[in-house]
């Protein structure tokens, strides 16, 4: 029973993290049809930005936990805006309309560039930003000690998910975006500035990536290569859920998060196996993912 609760808690926390990491990836794919390999790098940039800001903020020994959370989020948004703008204006806008698979390769090139750019900016030594994590303390749930920061992450994931959903389903801009998702050409013919929607989407997606990184920074040591690890997990989430679907990403994150927690508790050697195993299984049964749409080719 205890381990069941532990699996549930661990799984939900991990799922929340997976969702945060994957949300931006699925938004960008949904609107732009770009499977962004560099999304993990955005995550890493967010983590580095947050870790250096937190380190600076607490460097004189003072500093309040409350401010540090604002700092985390502020850093994430700032980094997202800057990186998103640079990448979209400087690279992607010249590449629109190419094959999906070619976009994967282009964003892979971007990943390689950003990985080294981070090494040049932040060096190769680890950064830490544990203060916000420890400041929140721990709770005891059914006899298990759980970090409050991790629990808060669940709340953040829910808020981000609902905000994205509300934005897409309940606002005018969301309606326009859904039109772009449904049929880019028709939307364009009806006067939607598709390129502007792309820019906006990319900024939002990038910021979701940096936000995920910034929020993760307090619970990890920020080192080179974290983005490369994260991107394949994010892929698994969105592929399971159905590329481009927010609900899908949420369900995919839960499925993978709980599966992994189970593996960690009962068969730790399968920790990594289980994520890609579940992904392969879902794809074998439903190639378009749980919430994906199938497209047939018109001849």
């Amino acid at each position: 029973m205890l381990s069941f609760i532990a699996v549930l808690i661990d799984g939900t926390i991990y799922a929340s993290w997976l969702f945060l990491v994957a949300a931006g990836l699925t938004v960008i794919y949904g609107v732009m049809r770009i499977l962004n390999m560099a999304h993990g790098s955005f995550y890493a940039i967010g983590a580095y930005a947050a870790a250096s800001a937190i380190g600076w903020y607490f460097s004189d020994g003072t500093g309040s936990a409350g401010m540090s959370f604002l700092l985390l989020i502020g850093c994430a948004i700032a980094a997202g805006l800057v990186v998103g703008t640079l990448v979209e204006r400087g690279l992607l806008r010249f590449m629109y309309g190419r094959d999906e698979i070619l976009m994967v390769i282009i964003t892979y090139a971007l990943l390689l560039i950003l990985e080294d750019a981070m090494k040049l900016i932040w060096g190769v030594n680890p950064y830490f930003a544990y203060q916000p994590y420890t400041a929140l303390g721990r709770s005891t749930i059914a006899g298990l000690k759980v970090s409050n920061y991790d629990l808060a992450l669940i709340g953040v994931a829910v808020v981000v998910g609902l905000a994205l959903w509300g934005w897409l389903e309940r606002t005018n801009l969301g309606k326009i975006l859904r039109a772009v998702i449904h049929d880019r050409e028709v939307a364009s013919a009806m006067g939607v500035n598709v390129r502007r929607m792309f820019f906006l989407t990319f900024i939002i997606g990038t910021t979701l990536g940096t936000l995920a990184g910034a929020l993760t920074a307090p619970s990890i040591s920020v080192v080179p290569g974290i983005g490369v690890e994260v991107i394949v997990l994010a892929f698994a989430v969105v592929v399971v859920g159905g590329l481009g679907s927010i609900e899908g990403a949420a369900v995919g994150a839960l499925l993978l998060g709980l599966s992994r927690a189970m593996a960690v508790h009962f068969a730790p050697q399968f920790e990594l196996f289980v994520i890609y195993g579940v992904m392969s299984l879902v794809l074998a049964i439903r190639p378009q993912g749980l919430f994906g749409r199938t497209l047939a080719r018109k001849i």
Partner: peptide
């Protein structure tokens, strides 16, 4: 048998997943 049902990014991602499965098994055993 499974992979040849997929094209484009789905093939790319699924082939990636299979290699990561092997990686995961090797690293953890």
């Amino acid at each position: 048998l499974l992979l040849t049902r997929y094209r484009e990014i789905f093939f790319a991602m699924l082939s990636l997943a299979f290699s990561m499965i092997l990686y995961g098994v090797l690293v953890k055993s």
